[in-house]
């Protein structure tokens, strides 16, 4: 019995020793590859923090200041006398800053209705794969708007609160490989003052957007905000309120993104897109427009502080 035991013991030693010898000849790369796979966060779901005029899920990284200048010209069907809309531009400039990689604050002013806007944007969830999986990126955006135009009826009692508008959206986006991204954006816009009793103060809209990669530096984007009927009855300048549809391209060079688009919306924030869009695509009420964004790194990542 003891002989068997010792034989078994010997055999075990032989096997272990041989295994050890074999292990010692293993490839060095294999030794390194035993790492746990890393979490792979999806990047560049959209090229810019705006799809066209409405927000995308993207945020600026910590310490990054983004400046945006947007133009929307008049309607193309204004004809040659209006130079197809070029004579009649509205402008919005804005600044957005990354408090953290996921939390941004922004400020802007639109010439159209002389409106100031302040924005809070927070990326709540990130699409990821690898060691951890999550299918979508989710970002919450809220804005407050202040219309600073002179009161249309100065003789009656006017309240400051009547100048205020708000919008809140939850943006849900997914990037499909490196080909295209889609985004849903349920949104509410609240207007403190509306024209008639039939108009709802709080308007609900469902938005959808896409970004399709054409080349490494060129993307095709579209965004659409659908307003379920029965919420807005009054007209603006005799025209019915329409759903906003915009189509554009992103052209990326080093630090700039140029976005060129055509849209039936005059304004460049959610307040205008939902409830104040009157252009009718079928009638040619189309505005040409562009955004130019440039980013400035104000606070460098910690790895570069000592360089």
């Amino acid at each position: 019995m003891s002989q068997y035991k010792s034989k078994f013991f010997c055999l075990a030693i032989i096997i272990i020793s041989t295994l050890n010898a074999a292990w010692a000849q293993d490839d060095l790369l294999d030794l390194l590859e035993t790492d746990e796979p890393a979490v792979d966060y999806t990047i560049a779901t959209f090229k810019s923090t705006k799809v066209v005029s409405g927000h995308s899920v993207e945020t600026n990284a910590k310490g990054v200041l983004q400046s945006t200048i947007g133009h929307r010209f008049g309607r193309i069907n204004g004809g040659y006398q209006e130079m197809f809309g070029i004579d009649n531009a509205t402008i919005r400039f804005g600044f957005d800053y990354g408090l953290t990689d996921n939390m941004n604050i922004g400020f802007g002013r639109s010439s159209y209705q002389k409106t100031y806007d302040g924005t809070f944007k927070w990326k709540l969830l990130k699409q990821k794969s690898g060691a951890e999986n999550f299918p979508i990126t989710a970002t919450w955006v809220s804005s407050i708007y202040i219309n600073s135009q002179a009161w249309p009826e100065p003789d009656r009692e006017n309240f400051f609160s009547s100048r205020l508008y708000y919008h809140h959206s939850v943006l849900l986006a997914r990037k499909f490989s490196n080909l295209f991204s889609i985004q849903l954006m349920p949104t509410i816009v609240h207007r403190n003052l509306v024209k008639t009793a039939k108009d709802k103060n709080t308007v609900f809209s469902m938005g959808a957007a896409t970004s399709i990669r054409l080349t490494k530096s060129l993307r095709l984007n579209a965004e659409y905000y659908f307003i379920p009927s029965g919420q807005i009855e009054s007209t603006i300048g005799g025209e019915k309120v329409q759903n906003s549809l915009s189509v554009g391209i992103d052209i990326e060079t080093g630090g700039h993104v140029f976005q060129l688009h055509i849209t039936n919306s005059r304004g460049m924030t959610e307040k205008y897109l939902i409830g104040e869009t009157t252009g009718n695509w079928l009638k040619g009420d189309i505005h040409f427009g562009f955004n130019v964004t440039r980013v400035f790194t104000l606070i460098k990542p910690k790895e570069f502080k000592d360089l």
Binding site: A38, A61, V64, G255, V295, K300, E303
Partner: peptide, 15 residues
């Protein structure tokens, strides 16, 4: 031998 994840490179500018 060396191995590294390309996404682990940090740049001065996020863009």
């Amino acid at each position: 031998a060396f191995t590294m994840l390309m996404k682990a490179f940090t740049f001065e500018k996020a863009l």
